[in-house]
Design a binder for these strands. Structure first.
Lengths: 231, 231
DNA sequence: AGTGTTAATATACACCGTTTACTAAAAAAT
DNA sequence: ATTTTTTAGTAAACGGTGTATATTAACACT
């Protein structure tokens, strides 16, 4: 008959579990995530967590959704101070925000884009919405370029018929955006992601948090390739 | 006094451990790698593995080096059938080989570029050589372009002085290649990697193993941006 | 007061990497 | 040829993990 720690009596234990998980992920990295460690920190027993999350994967899924939300917020916020018709600077702002967020919240970034939790595979049904939301700001920037007639489609290659079905199904999360917009946005995303991914995972030299020439030149290249001059 | 299974008496148990590890990684994924499972498969006990690898991380490091070697072989082989002065097609060949290898050996790809083993962090000293070797073919293609005067340096931005030291140290693995070559090669690598990484990790729709428009257009863009026309 | 539900516990199981102590066989040394 | 040393395995155990089961304490509602 052990008297439970008052900590466990806080209004929402579910949130406390997630908060502790984030704290431990930030401190020891996502792979070290442990239900038992979380329970210890909260002065409860490990099985108690199962009252709030079906299993470890359910907790991780909740964390992934949180990470996507944080990422989406950052993407959205980066556009607030840039005029909606200043396409060049909107591309630049959202591109820099991508990298800055990854550096600021490395563990969240890895949780989304790497697979640091052994045996965990996210279900598209659950994370789809928050994932789509996080990418939508980039899509909106590109779509604005297209609507303004400033989207360069020289590189556009239609999706091969064989993959059209898959593509269409996957695109359901993106409000049936214009194919050209989708094409360009995914290309931009893949470039920005490629740089940041290699950097975060230690395959590039450690540039630090500040912008550097290589990344800025990639943003330049994106602007030059996809943004028409005003005609 | 148990008579050991003949399997354990094969000439090189170290290689057998690695082979079994690869087999289980291919079947169940890298995160499920387990020394005990390997030992079971080989009819030995788990601690016996410690005669051949200092600990789990040492085994993983050996696997990572193998993966880099396989990747480097693939990169090298892709250039064999293309004339050394056919820069456009060398870029294309090596780019397609990158993606094809990642699809063919997904688990090896993830082992290198993701961090699927909990708690494992590769030491640059040990994997540096095989890692550098795997990237060198790309560097050689770009360097050949530069020497032939066909490398477009319009986007080049010198490394910021603050990072020059780090950069130089890291570059020691790459035979002091020309800075411009290094700059362009890293950019190309990051683009190709970005696409494949998103694809392999399920953030892009499943295009399958065959080439598709989006990836080919990225290779096009790389050619157009960095390869001068013959002057 | 009694009943049903909720949320925690205690216990247990099967797995993991790793350490220690021990042993049998092979190799080396005398 | 005998003794010693090294090698390469085993057995047992420690502390860790996620999770299932059964049980118990506290609460809300009739």
């Amino acid at each position: 008959m052990i008297k439970r720690n008052p900590k466990t009596h806080q209004s929402n234990l579910q949130d406390a579990i997630k908060a502790t998980a984030w704290q431990q992920i930030a401190e020891y990295g996502a792979p070290a995530l442990s239900l038992r460690a979380i329970a210890r920190e909260l002065n409860i027993t490990a099985p108690a967590i199962y009252n709030y999350f079906a299993d470890r994967d359910a907790l991780v899924t909740a964390l992934v959704i949180d990470a996507y939300t944080s990422f989406g917020d950052s993407q959205l916020a980066s556009l607030e101070t840039v005029a909606v018709d200043d396409h060049a600077n909107r591309l630049k702002a959202i591109g820099l925000a991508y990298r800055a967020w990854a550096h600021r919240y490395t563990q969240r970034y890895l949780l989304i884009f790497s697979t640091p939790i052994p045996g965990y595979a996210p279900s598209i049904d659950q994370i789809g919405p928050s994932s789509a939301r996080s990418i939508r700001p980039l899509f909106s920037v590109v779509e604005a370029m297209r609507v303004a007639g400033r989207l360069n489609d020289a590189a556009y290659r239609p999706i091969q018929p064989a993959y059209e079905a898959h593509f269409e199904q996957w695109r359901a999360y993106f409000d049936q955006v214009h194919p050209l917009t989708h094409f360009v946005a995914m290309t931009i995303w893949s470039r920005v992601h490629g740089f940041v991914s290699l950097e975060i995972n230690g395959h590039f030299p450690p540039f630090g948090e500040n912008g550097d020439g290589l990344y800025l030149s990639e943003i330049d290249a994106i602007q030059r390739q996809f943004l028409h001059k005003v005609s």
